[in-house]
Amino acid sequence: MLGSVLTLVFVLVFNFFLFRVVQTDPIGSLFRGRNVPQATIDNLRVAFGLDQPIGTQFLYYLRETAQLNFGISYQSRQPVWDEIVRAIPATLALVGISSVLSAVIGTLGGIVAAWRRNTWKDHSITSSTMVFYSMPDFWLGMILLVLFAVVLGWFPVGGITTAGSNETGLARLIDQAYHMFLPALTLTLAYLGEYTLVTRSSLLDVMGEDYLTVARAKGLRDVRVRNRHAVPNALLPVVTLTAINFGFVLSGAIAVEAVFSWPGLGKATADAIRGPDLPMLQALFLLFSAAVIVFNLIADITYSWLDPRVEEI
């Protein structure tokens, strides 16, 4: 708990200095080469507090951050936070569904592979997940997009709703789910590998344990030995991985969202890069870091709750 707070403080400080180094001339970048009277610039410097010593500036930054005031986006001229709030639901839906699917399918795959290790099942599961694991996720997205949207025409080529449609309620939801299918499939396939490989090696470790022999000696069926004794122990590291990954995937979908023009945080990031839209990038970076910290904490709490050997934190 204390560690998480310290880390958050570190991220805040880091974020402040990173963008201070980056943004040597924030006022200048605001006008981007246009001719502006020096007096205006000076006034703005005072207005933004840039004439203050660095300590004061940091306090100012902390206050603004606490109020979720990240400035104005260069690109849209809207408050950055409003832009982000608009993008959050799309990312949460896409990344949430893909993460859950990949965690569940990947874990099941890892269990089957380990329990039947060195059989054709194991070999095909392990090698196929390694292939998906080794390709750039956005490239996988490009291939699926061309195949299923361009060539076969089964799915839309991008976006979250059909252009020009003004459906509401359930019809709108179905339309969005239809648009989400390909990006979600891409992310699920891309994330699968890690869960499969981690589950497999974790279960293989557990399979050497004596309590499994004991369970068999008691007369338990093989399936029950696996489900009641092996898997609960093998899943402990997987649960941690899942929670930690949730923090990271929020930022991991940047390129895939760009491929499918999915209007979430990832696409916002990809768009901000082109500017570069520094206020937007700064806020996104802070948000992504905060997500990782929060989910790390959740991982710790879940672990201590699942494993009786770990003291409550």
Binding site: F248, I254, I273, L281, F285, S289
Partner: peptide, 22 residues
């Protein structure tokens, strides 16, 4: 090790993006 831990927490792709764009 504290610093290492912090760097582990900072999401790596966004950091790379920010640094690269700068």
């Amino acid at each position: 090790m504290r610093v290492t831990e912090w760097f582990l927490v900072i999401p790596f792709l966004p950091l790379a993006i920010v640094l690269a764009s700068v």
